[in-house]
């Protein structure tokens, strides 16, 4: 994992402050603030966490603790095409793990990582509510149902060709 150092510009800092303010700078709203901040920036680098900590008057250690506890939060920017493999019960029993392994093998990254060219990232999620289509994979907003390991390379190609 390379060190991702970002320099926050004033508008970015202002944006984080605005988000914190929308929750009245309440320390108890930390998770909601992080949620919204990640939605805005795509991920939560250290520098962003520092600003959130300062604004909500909680320690940076605490913010980092929350960020690392919930798998939803990420300190690594997601790929241009974020791949989410559902590993909920239904998808799991229908072979989601094999599908996941195929994605990892194909892209040479682990869950939670992003490819060097910034194109793809892999994450797992728990149930998208389409159990009838299990196993389910989402790439960005697009959903793929009944995915088999053999289909993985084709799915990836769809996006690499779009470059």
């Amino acid at each position: 994992m390379s060190n991702i150092k970002v320099e926050l510009k004033k508008p970015d800092v202002d944006k984080i402050k605005e988000i914190c303010k929308s929750f009245n700078n309440q320390p108890g709203e930390l998770i909601n603030v992080l949620h919204k901040t990640q939605h805005t920036f795509g991920y939560l680098p250290a520098e962003v966490q520092e600003v959130v900590a300062r604004e909500l008057n909680v320690s940076v250690a605490k913010v980092y603790g929350v960020v690392t506890f919930y798998s939803f939060f990420s300190m690594i920017p997601k790929g241009k095409y974020p791949i989410s493999v559902c590993t909920g019960t239904a998808c799991y029993v229908r072979g989601a793990e094999n599908v996941l392994d195929e994605f990892k093998k194909n892209l040479k990254i682990e869950v939670g990582e992003t490819t060097g060219d910034g194109m793809f990232s892999i994450s797992c999620l728990r149930c998208v509510g389409a159990c009838g289509l299990a196993p389910v994979v989402m790439v960005g907003e697009k959903t793929y149902g009944r995915v088999a390991p053999e289909m993985v390379s084709d799915i990836i190609k769809e996006y690499t060709n779009q470059k």
Partner: peptide, 17 residues
């Protein structure tokens, strides 16, 4: 505020930010 529990499950430790 130097220490907080970080990470999850078996990986969890108490650590600085």
């Amino acid at each position: 505020g130097a220490l907080s529990a970080v990470n999850r499950g078996f990986m969890s430790v108490v650590a600085p930010a």
